[in-house]
Design a protein around this nucleic acid. Sequence first.
DNA 1: TAGATTGTTAATCGATTAACAATC
DNA 2: TAGATTGTTAATCGATTAACAATC
Lengths: 217, 217
Amino acid sequence: MKKEFQKNFSPKVIERLTEYLRYLEECPEENYISAEKIGKELKISSPQIRKDFSYFISRDVEKLGVTGKGYHTQYLCEKIKMILGVHKTNNVVLLGAGSLGSAFLSEYHLAKKKFNVIGVFDSSPKKIGKKINGVVVKNMNELDSFIKLSEKVDIILLTSIPADIEEFLNTITLKGVKAILNFTTHNFNFLKDIAVISVDIYGKLQELNYWKNHGIA
Amino acid sequence: MKKEFQKNFSPKVIERLTEYLRYLEECPEENYISAEKIGKELKISSPQIRKDFSYFISRDVEKLGVTGKGYHTQYLCEKIKMILGVHKTNNVVLLGAGSLGSAFLSEYHLAKKKFNVIGVFDSSPKKIGKKINGVVVKNMNELDSFIKLSEKVDIILLTSIPADIEEFLNTITLKGVKAILNFTTHNFNFLKDIAVISVDIYGKLQELNYWKNHGIA
DNA sequence: TAGATTGTTAATCGATTAACAATC
DNA sequence: TAGATTGTTAATCGATTAACAATC
């Protein structure tokens, strides 16, 4: 072992790992692939890629690639998946069964990507009881008991803001939910023990609107 | 004028500008606001914020804030909007009228944010001719003529991949479309003259899945 | 072997922060 | 005035890249 252990993956590196994984899963034709090749496709420099992959070494493996040959595609995929924790199935609860929530159920193959939607909740009487893609929408006020009784919930996919957000946060904190993918405009900056990634469509449109006027992005 | 002009806004700064704008629009109660206050709310350091705002100076204004007082909320909002180009209306074309596309029409107030959806296209016969939120879905193969005849298209909101993607890119390049907000898995890394921001939900779930196991995000 | 490509170190580049004079 | 907070410079920190020895 050359390293003292545990150079940690930075957020930037984790982001790129998901890009590598997407690319590798789309083109598994080749047995071995070089950092150069991946980089051309994804517009990432090859030293960057080798450096990113070097973080796996001694944490996980002695050596990730083969000198003079490249990285074994399948093996690389597996290793990235293990780091990201998507080698095994994770449980997702969807909050909000509006068209955005429905889109996640119908247009995304979440289960294929190891994200299993084990519950869908909404507070609108119009939606409660309906089936969306084979899943019955439950009343938001049952979330509390559901989450307490269910198997571990890994991620909450949030497409609408719960009426009593404090209570909601208490519940999921107690039950040990550790992550929220947030599509609402609610500000979760104050959370301490729950990882939150917010996707702000308006924000992305605004950024893009700037770049369309100023070249590149 | 103190500066020689045009320190440019970096992608990181542009991203934060959208965060500032969101916060400022949500709480316009105060007349003046300090970098300290904004930073507390958004978990961004106050020197960072002042530095970000300093890029406005001499490009746009002599002075953005008021020493000892803070930034005039309304004025700051306006200035950020002007930089992002959302002080005036921009035209958006939506490609794909599936549930994700529908969500953008029904759950997002795009027009309020100065993004006006002037056309919706899909290639599925089931969807063509239908109305979604008051907009008639057109046949994807009419996109070409539509885009040539219509007023300027600023942004294409892409929720499904056009059958002939080469032709699609030719069309929009010729017509001068400069930006794509991409929700598909298609790789647009090779585009030269069109700004693309891709939102990869799977990727975000994977990142989150990592952070849920390793604390913070 | 010769050619290719890794893993890594050192150099560079860019972004963040600390600190403070200026001043409302 | 005293207190607050800006705008900016210099210092720090972190991320990217260049370069190359190791080696398959």
